[in-house]
Each structure stands twice: as structure tokens, then as C-alpha cells.
Design a protein around this nucleic acid. Structure first.
Lengths: 138, 138
DNA sequence: CCTTAAGAAACATCATAAGTTACATAAAAA
DNA sequence: TTTTTATGTAACTTATGATGTTTCTTAAGG
């Protein structure tokens, strides 16, 4: 299944922005991420809309952090990037009146909800300054 | 992100197989799932390889349960269907010597591992006879 | 031998993150 | 003012893997 690596990429970018302490262009970030500047703008613009970075056009322009790392969590970035489900598992909804399908979906969804809650909570506990310092696993 | 609905579909099929108590053809299952008999064979054959169902060719043939529902868990079926990750989030591995990328991946993976462990454990606790009886959420 | 069914190979479809092209817009420098 | 540098954005292409389809083979009962 295709993976969404935007969270990983953007976290990487944000910590680098913090360390460089100056505006970095989309072209520079694209080189860093082995990708395209338009992909960088597209993804970074989601973070700009939520106030985590700002962009300046023209000479000397580029991207800078709009908040200190310790005020940004993994959850903040995750939420900025995606409204879609965390899981590759999907439910079917083709038999509105079938009690078996209902029970199956309930059982799967029950577990996935619990796991999603856990992931979001953990993501909310990790601020980006912890990544800059070299993350220590639990 | 495209979802994998095979788990949901196969659980649905297995509980129906139990209730019908007779061989059901791929064509019948395809009608039930609003899909194609070849898709049914392809997916069911993964369960056959693990000994959860058996298939008989020819007249009166079709698919039957090879184990009682109470001896099959959601985890069994999930494992039979997929070796790939549960999550739509992927990590990047483009900068072998970048400590920031390492820290980012470690932080994300740490959380996802914990969540995956939880999901697999919960899936292992749910036997299919509970679905047949009408699943009651935790 | 005919019919019914699974097994299997080869190919098409679909959705979406990622990648690309092209052009508009804004700001600083020449 | 003109040029250069940068983001903003629309439109399109590509890659990937579950899903869907076609076609043929194999096996079993009648």
C-alpha cells in the first residue's frame, strides 16, 4: 500500500529550518528532500495555513519557522497534513441491513479507534525540540 | 489513501459460511460482496493456505470453513491477508547520515509500533464466533 | 463427454501521493 | 523600470497496489 511520507518529510524540514535560523527556499528544501520545489510548496502551504511556518516571496525570501519548536507537536503537523485515516484497513458498507457486516465493522472499528486515539495522544506529547535534541524512544 | 477492505470482506464471508453450513461457490460469494468471483478466489486462497477454509472443485463444490469460528481470531485473518503495514504513514530513508531524519523516524516509528502492538493484541482477542453473535464494543 | 467449479495468468481500472510543466504574482536588486 | 528571485497555483503525468476482468486450465460429479 502506498505510504504518505509527508509527516516524516515536514518534520525533517521544520527541524532544519530551526537550525539554519534563516529563510530557506523551496528549491533548497526540494534538493534536501530529493524532490520537486512544487511538491515542497504544496505541502508546506498546509503548514503555513495553520501558522507553523511563513513564506516570503522575492529576493532573500523563502520559508521560516513561525513558531518555536517547543510549541509544535507531531500532532499539530499530522493534523495540518491529513484529515484522512491513519490506517490502511478499510471497512465495507455495501449491505446496510446485514447484521454480520455491522458486527464485523464494529469490531474492526472499535480496535482502530482505540489505536488512533493512542497515536494522536502520543503525537501530542512529542514537541519538535525533542527531535532536534535527538529523540529518545520510550 | 486507498483502503484495503479485504479483512472486512473476508470476516463477513467467514461468518456467513458458518451460518450456511454448506459449500458456497465463488460466484455466490462474489454476488454477496458485490464483486467478481476471481477476486473472491484470489483472496480466499490466502485463507485456504493458512487452513481456515477449504475449497472443493466441481459439482457441489465451493468454499467451506475448515475450522470452527471460535478457533479463528481477527488476527489470524489479518495476518493471512497482509504482511504490509497497518498505517498510511510512511517514513523516509533518503539521508542515511542525517541525525534529524533518524530522530524523526524514531519518534514516529516508536508511536506506530506501540499502536500496532495494541491493534494486533486486540485483534487476537476477538474470535469470529463473537461476530456471529453480534459484536459488543468494549 | 458435459457441466460445474476452483486455479491461475495476463491485463485493465481506480484512487491518490508524488512528480512535473507552465505561468502568474510579489518583492528586492540592478 | 527592468531583471532576477522567489512563492502561488492550476493542470497534467506518473507510480503503486488493491480491485476488477478476461481467458484458459484443471478437477470432480453426473
Amino acid at each position: 500500500m502506498r505510504k504518505d511520507s509527508r509527516l516524516s518529510r515536514m518534520l525533517h524540514v521544520l527541524v532544519h529550518l530551526h537550525q539554519l535560523q534563516q529563510a530557506v527556499t523551496s528549491d533548497q528544501l526540494a534538493l534536501m528532500l530529493h524532490t520537486n520545489p512544487v511538491v515542497v510548496r504544496r505541502t508546506m502551504s498546509l503548514l503555513r495555513e495553520q501558522g507553523y511556518v511563513s513564506a516570503v516571496k522575492g529576493h532573500g525570501g523563502g520559508w521560516t519557522l513561525a513558531k518555536p519548536l517547543h510549541e509544535i507537536t507531531l500532532l499539530d503537523i499530522h493534523r495540518s497534513l491529513s484529515e484522512s485515516s491513519l490506517f490502511t484497513i478499510g471497512l465495507t458498507d455495501e449491505h446496510n441491513n446485514c447484521p454480520i457486516e455491522k458486527a464485523v465493522n464494529l469490531a474492526i472499528d472499535d480496535v482502530l479507534q482505540e489505536a488512533e486515539t493512542l497515536v494522536l495522544q502520543r503525537f501530542g506529547e512529542v514537541t519538535l525540540d525533542k527531535l532536534a535534541a535527538g529523540y529518545i524512544p520510550r
